[in-house]
Design a protein around this nucleic acid. Sequence first.
RNA 1: CAAGUAGAUCGCCUUAUCGCUUUUGUGCUGAACUUGUUUCAGUAACGUAUUAAUUUUGAACUUUAAGUACCAUUAAAAUGUACUGAAACAAGUUCAGCACUCAAGAGGAAAGUCCGAACACCAUAGUGCAGUCAUAGUGGUUAACAGCCACCCAUCGUAAGGUGAGGAAAAGUGCAACAGAAAGUAUGUACAGAUAAUGCUGUAGUGAAACCAGGUAAACUCUAUGAGGUGCAAUGCCAUGUAUACCAAUAUUAUAGAGUAGCACGCUCUUUGUUGGAGGGUAGGCAGCUAAAGUUUACUGGUAACAGUAAACAUAGAUAAAUGAUAAGGAUAUUGACUAGAUUUUUUGAGGUCAGUAGACAGAAUUCGGCUUAUAGAUCUGCUUUACAA
Length: 139
Amino acid sequence: MAWFSIFVIMRFKYSKKDKLKSKKLIEQLFTEGKAVTAYPLRLIYLNTEHEDGSVLKTGVSVSKRLHKTAVARNRIKRLLREAYRLNKPLYFNNSSTAYAFMILYLSKDGTTFEATDRKMKQLFQKFLDKIPEHEKTST
RNA sequence: CAAGUAGAUCGCCUUAUCGCUUUUGUGCUGAACUUGUUUCAGUAACGUAUUAAUUUUGAACUUUAAGUACCAUUAAAAUGUACUGAAACAAGUUCAGCACUCAAGAGGAAAGUCCGAACACCAUAGUGCAGUCAUAGUGGUUAACAGCCACCCAUCGUAAGGUGAGGAAAAGUGCAACAGAAAGUAUGUACAGAUAAUGCUGUAGUGAAACCAGGUAAACUCUAUGAGGUGCAAUGCCAUGUAUACCAAUAUUAUAGAGUAGCACGCUCUUUGUUGGAGGGUAGGCAGCUAAAGUUUACUGGUAACAGUAAACAUAGAUAAAUGAUAAGGAUAUUGACUAGAUUUUUUGAGGUCAGUAGACAGAAUUCGGCUUAUAGAUCUGCUUUACAA
């Protein structure tokens, strides 16, 4: 029942506001951002401020070189988004520091939801370990 | 029944939980605007009732005694009127956020970007010559096409059908395996004939073809017809801001250079600094943006492509790019095992149960009509050949 009550409080949303859309910011992210890797995932992050007041803005990317067809790319991106959506409240629920994220998929092979989910958790744990203590306000 | 051939259709389904994009409506919160009411303050060369004073006459009525009602000037002037500002309240509109809610949400090829259009913007000063690209039987169809349909011809196939790179070889240039002396600025060998003589004439042999010949145009070429360019990242608007293309003034430099798709002629333009004016592009937002040569059905005309008429239907609009994830179940195909042993007949093995496996190619991006390519599997129809039966 405790497990259930957690779910009542948390909001597993990933709407337009939380997506990384600005071309400028993405460019800045790739040039100035730092990276954390949990193969086949890589998180590029940048401490920044968002105009609309949201805390996290996240994008997802798969290289066209590694996955040629649009269907394969879409499939992986959807899985990444889904994994991000479900894991975000577990790690960043109380965070107040604003970040821009970009999650890359590095492998040439396909994947499943289960594997992606597991890797996403590793990735976030790594990220939380890495960032300085004073910035960390989440539990 | 088997093999084949042509065409058409479909290309997983259901439920639950958590989400995404766009919409419908409701509620709440916030902001802006409009209207009304109330209160307060201010302004006014607005000014009423009323009060006080002055003038007591100009004008009107009844009457000739006066009266009635009004008016003039000055001062005060509550309330009021108009405008302005502020606050509160109410209503409405718009926008934003949040919550709930209604509805919808990838394809037959959405793909390749290969043709043809719609739509948008740019260019429009040419003429001659040369050149580039596309198309190519005949007729029809269409908004248009290199598409489609019909027919003719050629060719492949036993056939149903398939394919066509189907204009011109008497304008010119080139090319040609094998065989052959030789495939063209050639004339060998043998025999016969003619002649002053010969490389003259005929026959034989090779080959598809042996001389004023023929093949080849998926060789150049010629003929006929057509072709301005760039694509929704077009284009328009919004807010912000300034490089410098632009304009004006002023000082200064050159007759050469640049553009006009290749050349010639022709045409157009002109360097740098300062001051002033005006004002891009990118990124962001909004529009363009989905009702269109629409889809389905029926009938009519036409061999057909297609056209016409009538009825019904409302059907994605994202932008680092929504249409998903997870779980359970079902259907389908297939493999194995077990079962069943069905039937006019088959080298017999329909059907049932359990377990495993499989589901392809592929993701809208301004919109249509085509073509091309990829595609597991399923269904239906026409026809051909062979065999069997009647």
